[in-house]
Design a protein around this nucleic acid. Structure first.
Lengths: 109, 109
DNA sequence: AACCTTGTACGAAATGGATCGAACGACCGT
DNA sequence: ACGGTCGTTCGATCCATTTCGTACAAGGTT
């Protein structure tokens, strides 16, 4: 595949974004991207299988949270920070502002 | 039932909030509460059965988004705006800032 | 008391979504 | 061309969730 489909900013819905962010794995991916910037799929360090990772990245991309470009054999993923900030101000920054380490759900005080 | 359990602000997690908000019905409830303030269950005007409404309200309450108090035979539901603003600044206001009725209003651009 | 209203609790059915392994495809070395 | 790396697609499985109807509980009214 050479070109990858991305929704335009006007198509983004709050429901879609929240749904995409409601999964712990995807939330972790978004946080990682927020810290490291553009990262390859394999470089995300997520503890799921490759096929599952592909699935989650597609959900994030379809929701408009991320964009993906091809570089050789890799897919470089990054947050669509500008588009998101324009359409849903503060949403992304609010999410990124919370570094809850919880790799899984543990230690609820 | 006289007393209803609510989580303390420290227990609230971003994942939990986003998950609770990721359902269209619950998002609609939250928006309605944001506009009208404290409302009885039946006054929410949601198009689901009573038992389903109870379920969604429990999810919202367990996530820390709402609080419920008893008044006679009714349950008055309201947003925990202060607690949410303290723990996740801008999150709630960002969500409430977007009135997408879903199919009613289009072309927000 | 009996009755109505408001909401909850309890299953049960149906749907959706997360997960994986295996097979495949694209790209880049040698 | 061959093989290795990176990621996607397919099919299946498993678990969570949404939804409902019915039965029930609590509170108010007459």
């Amino acid at each position: 595949m050479r070109t990858i489909a991305h929704p335009v900013p006007e198509q983004l819905t709050l429901s879609g974004l929240l749904h995409a962010l409601s999964d712990p794995v995807r939330l972790e991916i978004v946080r990682t991207l927020g810290e490291r910037g553009e990262t390859s799929c394999g470089g995300l360090g997520v503890s799921v299988s490759k096929s599952t990772l592909t699935h989650h990245l597609k959900v994030l991309r379809d929701a408009g949270l991320t964009q993906t470009r091809c570089q050789g054999v890799q897919r470089l993923v990054s947050l669509r920070e500008e588009d998101l900030e324009t359409r849903f101000p503060s949403l992304l920054s609010c999410v990124l502002a919370h570094h809850e380490p919880g790799s899984t759900q543990m230690g609820v005080l």
